[in-house]
Amino acid sequence: MWRAIASNALTILVVGLFLMGGLILWGQTQYKAEGPLETAICLQVRSGSNMTRVSQELEEQGAIRSATIFRMAADYTDRAQQLKAGSFLVREGASMEQIIDEITSSGASTCGSEIEYRIGVTRAQTRVRELNPATLDFVEIASFDPSEDEVPEAYTEKRNEADTRYRVSLAEGATSWQVVQALKAFDALTGEVTEIPAEGMLAPDSYDVVAGQDRTDILQAMQDKQQLRINAVWESRQDGLPLQSPEEMLILASIIEKETGVPEERGQVASVFVNRLKQGMRLQTDPTVIYGVTKGQGTLGRGLRRSELNRPTPWNTYQIDGLPPTPIANPGLASLEAAVAPDDTDFVFFVADGTGGHAFAETLQEHNRNVAKWREIEAEQNSGN
């Protein structure tokens, strides 16, 4: 009898272990399998929340099939206590494993609201945006100039939300003075800036920041990135360039940046200035004259006067030989690359062509014809105003 009982108990134990193993295997499969979500969602995890609430919300929104398995998996993988507050993008078909990783890893929000502070050449702009999970596109909620416009209610609301993300975007061609003035106007940042960074040494790019971050830290990140770019681009330079140092490359790149906004033209514009430097011709570029007038503190807001073209300044390339003493703006990576790898041309002249680009020429006679065409276009444009 005891032998039969022991045999039955053993059988039950084996069956139980088999069933338990099968259950664990099934749970692991569910944990790693593609989820049921058909359209991406933005999951908001509030401060003080826990894995139970999150799992229930995910199940209600159709992102997971079982809140229980989700919680058990979080406990089993020791991730339950690593839950982060924020707004997280849960993509369509995301597995439980992927969702748990998303909400317990860095803590950086991947969807929801974003306040972007854009520093442009002529103005700064604050944009409040919301990510549409279905399209992964940002939808603009509000936009304003912080130095001129009334602050919209949408901005104030998002500034008060703990999971709002912040970004500073610096456009190519802005001056260091403009960058500092713009950062001072961004109320999400802190700290005083006592010194304007050297012209040209701030890398145009997009920077993730946090509310309360010190302005000098952001400026330092911009400088560090620009120095890395300068070092890398200088090492890749063509042979035979009339540039003696990375500093001269940076100056030339800043002139290229201010002369054209057409990406396809950068190599041609660079070739004009390189050819002029090689031939001992003056660069005669208007942006350098403008910098001599404004010192980079704002925009001129009008055309150059003949007296300004004739007035000597350290930056007036109609009056000085070679390159000016400093950059005239902060150039982007593409302009740096153009400075050390110009197109192979014989161009030494260019003028606007009325389309936003330029007409290039090898001879003065050809250039004069291009100038005459541009004057006609200007006259037609002015007569239409």
Rank of each mutant, 00 (worst) to 15 (best):
I12L: 15
E195C: 01
N385T: 14
S254V: 11
S47K: 13
G298K: 01
G191N: 12
I256C: 03
S105Q: 09
T104D: 04
A352Q: 03
W26Q: 11
E308N: 02
V210R: 15
I290P: 00
S7Y: 10
E308Y: 11
D75A: 12
E172K: 01
W374F: 12
G296W: 04
P152D: 11
R127S: 14
L37W: 10
L13M: 13
A63Q: 02
G356K: 07
E34F: 09
S236V: 00
G322A: 10
K84D: 03
I119M: 08
W26C: 07
L23E: 10
A108D: 12
I64N: 02
L23F: 15
N275W: 09
Q220K: 15
V54C: 10
Y291Q: 00
E153W: 08
S47L: 06
Q30W: 09
Q98A: 15
Q226H: 07
A203P: 08
R237A: 05
M72Y: 10
Y155R: 04
P342A: 02
R369C: 04
G322H: 07
D101Y: 13
P324Y: 06
K258H: 07
T39Q: 15
A6T: 13
V233T: 06
G296T: 01
L19Q: 08
E257K: 02
P146R: 08
E172T: 09
E337S: 08
G16Y: 12
A361G: 09
V293Y: 02
R65D: 08
V90M: 05
V351L: 03
W315S: 00
Y155S: 06
T104Q: 04
E378M: 05
E114T: 13
T126H: 11
V180W: 03
L304K: 03
A211S: 15
G35D: 10
V351T: 05
Q178S: 11
K32V: 14
E265A: 05
A94F: 06
V340R: 00
Q227P: 02
Q297R: 09
R123Q: 13
T104H: 07
A40R: 02
E248K: 01
G21C: 09
L300F: 06
V180T: 12
M72G: 02
E148N: 08
S206D: 14
S169C: 12
G301I: 14
L10E: 05
L10Y: 09
E378F: 05
E378L: 15
V139P: 00
G112T: 04
I5C: 06
A74D: 06
S55W: 08
Y318Q: 04
V289P: 02
A339C: 01
Q297P: 00
T156Y: 06
Q98K: 12
A108F: 13
L183G: 10
P246M: 06
A108S: 08
W234G: 02
G212A: 13
G240K: 03
F186V: 11
I218Y: 10
L131E: 04
A171W: 14
S105W: 09
D163H: 09
